[in-house]
Design a binder for these strands. Sequence first.
DNA 1: TCTTTTTTGTTTGATTATCAAACTATTTGA
DNA 2: TCAAATAGTTTGATAATCAAACAAAAAAGA
Lengths: 151, 151
Amino acid sequence: MDPKINEINGYLVSIFNDVLMIEERTLQSSQFKDVSIKEMHTIDAIGMYQEHTTSEVAKKLGITVGTLTVSVNNLVRKEYVIRVRSETDRRVVKLALTKNGRLLYRLHDKFHRDMVRETLQEMSEEEAEVLMKGLLNLHSFLERTKEQLPE
Amino acid sequence: MDPKINEINGYLVSIFNDVLMIEERTLQSSQFKDVSIKEMHTIDAIGMYQEHTTSEVAKKLGITVGTLTVSVNNLVRKEYVIRVRSETDRRVVKLALTKNGRLLYRLHDKFHRDMVRETLQEMSEEEAEVLMKGLLNLHSFLERTKEQLPE
DNA sequence: TCTTTTTTGTTTGATTATCAAACTATTTGA
DNA sequence: TCAAATAGTTTGATAATCAAACAAAAAAGA
């Protein structure tokens, strides 16, 4: 059992690092050089389809609202994001992507989808199911762990 | 095919975020409050078992040597890491963990191993093999992508 | 209705993370 | 021996982060 644990753990760690590194490098060699990987994930969290408030996005990203405000300032300056004050509750700020922001969003999404598609390519239907089950197990372990976390 | 891609991609993204978040929180609520998650990964890269030079560790982490020097300054001040000048080549600095650094290393390692162990718990031997194969596929896709990367 | 409390977001000060470029010390090679 | 290469450090600039102080608006209480 033990050697398998080490092996799987090793793959996970190196997958994490690779994905981050590849995303970073891909951005830097694209037309979106002025966007960091953190900013990319902020853009991803803001999303294409619904409006999200500052609080919602900060929670999704696991950062404080203050941190997000600073980051959104930069993304607004670089014209990827716009702020829209809510009409019904004027304390609330809704975040949305500009045209350019949506373009970047799709590019990033495509990278992720290609990555998974390539992975599944050499696998049978049943194997893909098992991979999914493994990821589901891992995911629910982490969700349980999160709940037990001291605040 | 498409819905499966989205689902797997979703799990991966959320697994990434959860692991980072849980590691961060766990550190902050332990006796190692003065260590950030980045510093934790530096400690992990330095490792328990062999001596590694500054260049080697920087390469492993994918950061510049200058960045690592700064980080190691802090870790030395906080007494997790020591620098040892090589006897044979006095330009070279070997990095090693202090007693406290090794304690932290083991704690972090245990979290990772528990995570994987829990994941495998409900899976049969064969299913674990398939999971591993999926991760291997993903891993080799990423390695290939890395090679194609400009620079 | 007026006041207090709560909620939402912004600003600020401190620390860490990061790179590129200038720099120092040492080793290697011509 | 002296120039070039290598290993690491320092520095200046910028981004990422938090906690705490703050401002504006809404909700609750009286």
